[in-house]
Amino acid sequence: MYSKILILRFPGDVVHKPIVCSLVRDYDLTFNILNATVFPRKEGILVLELYGTRKNFRQGVSYLKEQGVHVKNAEQEIKRKEEKCTHCGACTAVCPTGALSIQRPEMIVNFDQKKCSVCELCVPACPTRAMKVRPTNYAFFE
């Protein structure tokens, strides 16, 4: 099962259309609404986590875009600013998944993003502030 948190922005002229329900009926996707607001100028914002197969997910997102909905990825990831990291190792005290680990005997601090659970504990623990939270972005959203 594939899932992602998305921010959907509905322009005033589409906000009245039943769109999201089609994700379930036509694309076999399920969702959990995390936040929803309609603004005074009728623009709507919907934050939801969308679940399904990768293929259905991609087709569902294309459908949303065809309907005039702006789709943004709300998920975050941790990135390391390589030029700021001094390889001191302080972050390895707090990293719960071993994504930040020390390569011995060189004592290089490695960051394996695949192991990162985005708990963000390393962000304030890094003395030089080399660890940054940023939204993830994949090509098919653009």
Binding site: C88, A90, T92
Partner: peptide, 11 residues
Amino acid sequence: VPTVPLSSMVK
């Protein structure tokens, strides 16, 4: 007990 360095050997 896991150990954590604070001094950079690389540098």
